[in-house]
Amino acid sequence: MEIKILGTGCSNCKNLEKATREAVAELNLDANVVKEEDIVKIMGYGVMRTPALVVDEKVLVYGRVPSVKEIKEMLSK
């Protein structure tokens, strides 16, 4: 599973990264979490509000930081 966190380095982007890593660890997923900070690439996902959570190139959430529990639910689907 390829997980990307889109964000240009604001505090919420860091919060989302932390929550996602926690969710991945709790679910014992074999996933690669990377941070995408390049604004041109971020725009490629059509996102106007950061941070955003992208799983296997699909944008799941943007513009807010979901809870660890919510991320776990999304990743389990």
């Binding site: 240009t8 604001c10 604004i39 996102v47 106007m48 509000r49 513009g63």
Partner: peptide, 17 residues
Amino acid sequence: TPFCSCSAIPLFLGFIE
């Protein structure tokens, strides 16, 4: 509209685009 200055750039780009 929800806005935070950290999102000013993606928003600007999204509008111009």
